[in-house]
């Protein structure tokens, strides 16, 4: 009982603290501190509730148990991370986004193809593409190549749609200006269309960064060698050792957030000029 009350009191206290903090003039440190306090509060609440209600660790292990398990199985987690993230997700992400980008450049010269591809691409991007995973595992085998293939298929259309949309983003006047200089098609593309498309391209890259990890993990449910995050999750669930599953989820969460963060950081560098980045 004391665990529950303690956790709730902690929650209330931290919330009051956050309300006070958020009234202060906004600084960089503050906008990091406030969500951090909130996150810690959630963890404390989780720990308190699990202990207080004596929830079975098979259903929901407390954060403390998960972190112990995490620290004890670093080598396994690392092997899984390399197999799923580095080999599967990253190679698929690079191939998929790269080919979608080249495809978008290729159709950029034909408004006819653009008008045809956009609705079809938007349609395909909304489909449950993960469902292709069993087929691709059948085609490319159990190892990381099939996972990369799933990722390629998943990221291709979102990336294509965003890039095509972005290449159309430069306004009329700026294109007229290029004309008055007698600029060639490729000069116009390199100096105007591509830079103007960057915010859209990065939007696509960000969406794809989360899709890539999902694709690689889900594909492992349909067959994999005896390593990989998806493999580990499905086998450990079968053995009901949920703390290992949560440790693996932690890795996935960290990897996913870090990946997204890196893309967002590069975006900030490249599209510093865009109103949304100027703040």
């Amino acid at each position: 009982m004391s665990w529950i009350i303690g956790a709730l009191l902690f929650w209330a206290a931290m919330w009051l603290l956050n309300v006070q903090l958020s009234k202060r003039p906004q600084t960089r440190a503050l906008s990091l501190l406030v969500p951090l306090i909130f996150g810690v509060t959630l963890l404390v609440l989780w720990e308190g509730m699990v202990r207080g209600f004596q929830i079975s660790p098979i259903l929901l292990p407390p954060p403390s148990a998960i972190s112990v398990r995490f620290a004890n199985s670093l080598p396994i987690l690392w092997v899984d991370f390399v197999q799923t993230f580095v080999k599967g997700a990253m190679s698929g992400y690079i191939i998929g986004c790269g080919s979608a980008f080249l495809m978008a450049i290729a159709v950029n010269r034909s408004p006819f193809l653009q008008r045809g591809l956009l609705p079809v691409g938007n349609f395909v991007a909304a489909l449950p593409i993960v469902g292709m995973a069993p087929i691709l595992v059948m085609w490319f085998g159990f190892d990381w190549q099939s996972k990369a293939a799933v990722v390629v298929v998943m990221v291709f259309f979102p990336m294509l749609v965003n890039t095509v949309e972005g290449l159309k983003a430069s306004d009329h006047m700026q294109r007229d200006l290029m004309q008055t200089y007698g600029a060639s098609y490729w000069q116009g593309l390199m100096k105007l269309s591509l830079p103007a498309a960057m915010p859209f391209i990065f939007n696509g890259l960000k969406i794809c960064s989360t899709l890539a990890l999902i694709g690689a993990i889900v594909a492992e449910f349909f067959g994999s060698p005896i390593k990989g995050m998806g493999f580990r999750i499905s086998t450990e669930v079968g053995r009901l050792s949920l703390d290992m599953v949560w440790a693996e989820i932690t890795v996935a969460a960290l990897a996913g957030s870090a990946f997204y963060g890196v893309v967002a950081l590069i975006e900030k560098r490249v599209t510093f000029w865009h109103p949304s980045q100027r703040g």
């Binding site: 006047m173 700026q174 008055t180 600029a183 100096k191 105007l192 830079p195 960057m198 599209t271 510093f272």
Partner: peptide, 26 residues
């Protein structure tokens, strides 16, 4: 040289970079 109603400068280039734009193309 053509001057439009709005300045239409490229936000990702500095003022110097914008003026260089036609020079690079030419």
């Amino acid at each position: 040289g053509y001057v439009f109603q709005a300045a239409g400068l490229y936000p990702w280039r500095t003022i110097g970079g914008n003026i260089k734009l036609p020079l690079e193309i030419m």
